[in-house]
Design a protein around this nucleic acid. Sequence first.
DNA 1: CAAGTGACTAGTG
DNA 2: CCACTAGCCACTT
Length: 113
Amino acid sequence: MKQKKSDDFYEKVYEVVAEIPFGRVTTYGAIARFLGIGGSARMVGYALNKTLRTDGPDLPCHRVVNRLGELSGKAHFGHGVMESLLQQENITFVDENTIDLEKHFWDPSIELR
DNA sequence: CAAGTGACTAGTG
DNA sequence: CCACTAGCCACTT
């Protein structure tokens, strides 16, 4: 059965996010660029949100943050959950809502290749 | 079907 | 990094 282009895109997002190593993080934009849709970083977060709402392929979505390292998606995990998960991975926080992106950044276009 | 919304980002100042 | 603009596009109303 034929899939829409957007569904194909969601699958790719799942694959990339599933490959993010323990103790590392990446950004919506980095994933978007790796998948060749640079301008549509919004869709990456949207895809992850959809998996949490209904489908749930055990993705470490807590390892995906915005370009400043802020936990823009923490509200969708439940309050405090995303922070705890990251702290369990020895992620360094520079602020209550921000991790040290420079120190833990994982770029799929370089590392996954 | 038009308008609003959102886990975003890059450019300009 | 802040404020604002524009581009992005699936989904909801």
